[in-house]
Design a protein around this nucleic acid. Structure first.
Lengths: 248, 248
DNA sequence: ACGCGAGATTGATCTGGGTCAAGGAGCGCC
DNA sequence: GGCGCTCCTTGACCCAGATCAATCTCGCGT
């Protein structure tokens, strides 16, 4: 996965995406070196919880490979996913000691971490890092608000289509895109995880996926391997007029 | 309203809350003076649209008095409110030309604005402003994610209770709180606007409010004036275990 | 005081998606 | 290669909330 190449994201140069996209897009060499010093890697297995909501969290970082989710849980067990972390996404909140959500690896995962205190110190002295972080946070806020529309006003079928569109778009931007408007990817989530993201039950997710398949909007090989023959058709199903800014 | 006093927020010192809370909590006098120079006020009437989604937006700012909403609309007319702006809340996204949402004043409203370009320039030279803005954006992100749980997983009754809790909490932090766990405020939203916030219909909102009234969770004088006799009871109805971080 | 109109309430009915329940399909493991 | 496990699909039924349709209320202007 690290070897993948896309001209717009410099994910493949060097060994860590954070160096290029997540926090340091415009940093000079000194600043990069400082970051190197407080950087370390952690690996997690599929299903492993990276942080529990309420736990002390002494690092921030970004996903190198694999997929993680942010979820909230009510005491009666209802859960809602509030974020989907794909490679290059940032985790953690500078200036807060406790994690506000459960962070769970849904696939095997490698994270590039920075100890929080030195990272915060660096932010104080390196406006560009703070700036970049602000930009990223604003993007996440937009994505969260886009998702509020999905959760509040879309039908089950539209919700599924919206999720597939998000994953497809993000995935395609990481891979060399397949030819001719066609889009191929593997679903990184179980039906249950999709349901938690969409505010549905897993049965409804399954039914709507079957329905979209029946109608030729998507093709499925096995349970996870998806082909989108016509992405515009999918967007239409999602109720998206503009192919707007849904960014996971 | 400008004259209100609360020890934790220095809203009442000076003539503009942004000076103290929104962007400049820890700025020195020089920095404050710079902000003063690019500051101006705008007034809006109830119902007036401040910015249309997709319009050029050449300012950022914060609400001084009144209430505004951020909404998204699908082409078939379904709308979802994605943010509620109460006094001292920040509007606008540095580094983006176009507004992503409709911003509508739901009451008469005064905004303290800064022309965007000079504000952005100031951010580059004044780390504390960028820092403060990052903090605020992270708070908004948390609020948006909290709201995703409300939209995705809560029942209509819980949604109403959650909204009342948010408004009550915010309102109480601006006013001197009424005695003995009791909480009194005026609903700043119509039933329809509440429905748009909660992903419900206005009929359901009305029914649930009646039901909460019948059960003694809230008291209503007229259509808008609300008394919460027991805030903990309301939180229980909202399904909130911890009285956690819902911040509008 | 009166009448008008926007907003709110309440009722009757319908339906999308939840719930409960019964298999099926793939896959790793002995 | 069959056993068991986890994940997924499909069916039957139900219910919370949407929809459609009357009123009702109250603030406001004359």
């Amino acid at each position: 996965m690290l070897g993948n190449s896309h001209p717009d994201l410099s994910l493949q140069c060097g060994d860590c995406p954070i160096r290029h996209r997540a926090v340091c897009a415009r940093c000079d060499e000194d600043e990069l070196d400082q970051l190197e010093e407080i950087k370390y890697y952690r690996s997690f297995e599929a299903g492993q919880t990276i942080v529990w909501s309420g736990d002390r969290m002494d690092f921030v970082g970004s996903v190198v490979t694999g997929i993680a989710t942010l979820t909230q849980t009510m005491e009666d067990g209802r859960t809602q996913m509030v974020g989907l972390l794909l490679p290059s996404d940032f985790v953690g909140r500078p200036g807060r000691a406790m994690a506000a959500y459960d962070v769970v690896a849904t696939t095997d995962l490698v994270m590039c971490c920075f100890r929080k205190k030195p990272f915060e110190d660096m932010m104080l002295h390196t406006p560009r890092i703070a700036q970049r972080l602000l930009e990223m946070t604003l993007d996440e806020l937009d994505a969260a608000r886009e998702w509020m529309l999905v959760l509040g006003r879309k039908t089950a079928r539209e919700k599924i289509a919206s999720l597939l569109a998000i994953i497809g778009r993000r995935d395609a931007s990481l891979k060399v895109s397949a030819g001719a408007g066609q889009m191929v990817f593997d679903l990184p989530l179980t039906r249950e995880a999709m349901a938690d993201y969409l505010g549905l039950t897993l049965e409804t997710v399954s039914r709507q996926i079957s329905s979209l398949k029946r109608d030729g909007v998507i093709e499925l090989a096995g349970k996870r391997h998806v082909t989108i023959p016509d992405f515009d058709r999918l967007l239409e199903e999602a109720g998206d007029d503009n192919d707007g800014g849904l960014v996971a």
